[in-house]
Design a binder for these strands. Structure first.
Length: 521
RNA sequence: GGCGCUAUCGUCUAGGGGUUAGGACGGAAGAUUCUCAAUCUUCAAACCCGGGUUCGAUUCCCGGUAGCGCUACCA
């Protein structure tokens, strides 16, 4: 992965929590672009917001990014020639360049207090004007300003916005122009010596030789200030690509309110990383022709194009993500899915155990099932694969196997309807007596072939066929009239009944027995 | 309030001065199956509004409206 082009992009998250889907999509687009151009991907941590940033979040961010399948060539964890890659380690650099700007009189000292500025702003809003800085301190004599600063008067450093409109090119949106009238001289260094975001981002991007700034469109309105900064510093302005916002179903900006929005959430839900990456790529980007939807990582790298990114905001559609996830679950090698699915089962089993015993067993969480159980769970997963959107639904879908309860099966109104059918009574009675007499069923070794034979006998004896035959039988066995095919289900139930599990899985015979008992009582 | 960005089926999108406006998710119907899921087939579903340019605008331009963003000594 040696970069051999001059393209350099960066993903610059703030370590304020888990990676959010919006940011993940930004990271993905940066990554796709870098990899396609064989350029360099830089990870930079924007931790100048001391109040919200936490060191541990950086590790989470990196985990989330890696889980999504992204990597980077330079960053706080891997180093690089343009470090440091944490803004908190770069404060000296920011101060130094601010002073340089001052010397070149591209910036000036501002002694206005926050209260003054606040009043100015309120007045402007009251007069329905743009709330821009008056530029009062811009008129100060440099010599006087210097004297006041040396006299320990608190001051911030402001950039001089040029007297001409600011234009820049955006790959997604085309040419954008802002009148200088509406961009007021921004503070770059606060009176407490801390630099401001719009300033550090430029210093970092320029010093890190970033050629393409790909980021969320919430930064679009900040861009003129940044362009002015590049110009003041005499540095080349990079290309910009502002990605549209991801919205929730209510067309409001996607937030925790909308449910799962962090990468960690999706990961816990059992969404596969390739499904998420594929989905995210489709949010705002479409291939030429616009008919393909499924892309491997390599195909995305090959096909991706910033020029084809849509400028309009996109609503996050969980259903479509699930569709992709189902696709990738089906595609994935069974061993991989089994391995990923395992924790969901063990957690459910342990929870079930603690619920019923009332004892909290922390050791249970690390329960590693023995080989035969592992294999069996793998077969359960394969049986249920086409029934789930995400892996965390597996235990729930497997519930008829694990938690058979004859009473609830009988009490269920839908089932009651089935039992009101003319043949149902006879089917139940005949089938039950056959199972109770069957030798193989006694030891939990009923085979699909044997099961089929018994069903056929019931069919011949009662005249029931199709649903009238199978629905009552299925209810007896799994408590519901619908479910997986018996051919696959029967061996799994029987095998499960012979395994040593935290909670015994009832054999077909045990189920039928319970059912008959519950029915008669 | 000011400024900016955006506007094609419910959703993600393709397309583009003349098209039966294409695909996908979801929905509906059918096929298959004992059932459900999966799968396959079919169907319904859209160019925000008003002007202008033009022989012709959904497409180009302007305005309106709506949504979102920015308007900080937040990032």
């Amino acid at each position: 992965m040696t970069p051999n082009s001059s393209v350099r992009v960066r993903f610059a998250p703030s370590p304020t929590g888990h990676l959010h889907v919006g940011n993940a999509r930004t990271a993905l687009f940066n990554w796709l672009f870098a990899r396609q151009k064989q350029g360099t991907m830089v990870l930079r941590i924007e931790d100048t917001d001391l109040e919200r940033s936490e060191a541990r979040f950086e590790g989470q961010l990196i985990d989330d990014l890696k889980w999504l399948g992204l990597d980077w060539d330079e960053g706080p964890d891997v180093g690089g020639a343009y470090g440091p890659y944490r803004q908190s380690d770069r404060l000296e650099i920011y101060r130094e360049h601010a002073e340089r700007l001052l010397q070149k009189s591209k910036a000036y000292l501002c002694f206005c207090t926050e209260e003054e500025l606040q009043k100015e702003r309120e007045r402007a809003i009251a007069e329905q004007r743009q709330a821009t800085y008056s530029g009062k301190c811009r008129a100060l004599e440099p010599a006087e300003a210097k004297r006041r600063r040396e006299g320990e008067e608190a001051c911030a450093i402001r950039l001089k916005i040029p007297e001409h409109p600011i234009r820049f090119h955006d790959i997604v949106r085309g040419d954008v122009e802002f009148s200088n009238e509406v961009v007021s001289d921004p503070i770059i260094l606060r009176s407490n010596g801390m630099p401001v975001y719009n300033y550090v981002v430029v210093i970092d991007d320029a010093l890190m030789k970033i050629t393409h700034v790909i980021r969320g469109d919430d930064h679009l309105s900040n861009t003129p200030k940044q362009v002015a900064l590049y110009e003041a510093l005499g540095w080349p302005v990079p290309e910009f690509a502002h990605l549209s916002t991801i919205l929730g179903a209510d067309r409001e900006r996607l937030s925790k309110r909308h449910g799962a929005t962090s990468i960690a959430n999706f990961r816990e839900m059992g969404v596969l990383p390739e499904a998420l990456a594929n989905y995210l790529a489709l949010l705002g980007w479409a291939p030429s022709g616009g008919t393909r939807e499924i892309f491997t990582r390599e195909e995305l790298i090959k096909e991706f194009s910033l020029k084809r990114v849509t400028p309009s905001p996109a609503v996050f559609d969980m259903e479509k993500l699930y569709w992709l996830n189902r696709h990738y679950i089906k595609e994935a090698p069974p061993e991989r899915i089994n391995k990923l699915a395992l924790p969901y089962y063990t957690r459910a089993m342990v929870e079930d155990l603690t619920r019923r015993s009332g004892v909290q067993s922390s050791a249970g969480h690390e329960w590693i099932p023995p080989e035969p159980v592992l294999n069996w769970l793998g077969r359960v997963t394969q049986l249920l694969q086409s029934y789930v959107d995400r892996l965390d639904q597996l235990p729930e879908r497997a519930s008829p196997i694990f938690n058979y309860d004859a009473r609830t099966a009988i009490a269920n109104p839908e089932n009651a309807e089935v039992f009101s059918w003319p043949h149902s009574d006879a089917v139940v009675t005949r089938f039950a007596s056959k199972i109770m007499q069957d030798e193989s069923a006694k030891s939990g070794k009923l085979t699909p072939g044997c099961f089929k034979r018994l069903v056929n006998e019931v069919k011949a004896e009662t005249g029931a066929k199709g649903k009238e035959l199978f629905h009552p039988i299925r209810i007896m066995i799994i408590g519901s009239h619908s479910g997986p095919e018996f051919d696959k289900l029967i061996p799994i139930i029987e095998e499960g009944s012979r395994l040593n599990l935290p909670r015994h899985v009832l054999s077909v015979r045990e189920r039928v027995e319970q059912f008959e008992k519950a029915r008669k009582s």
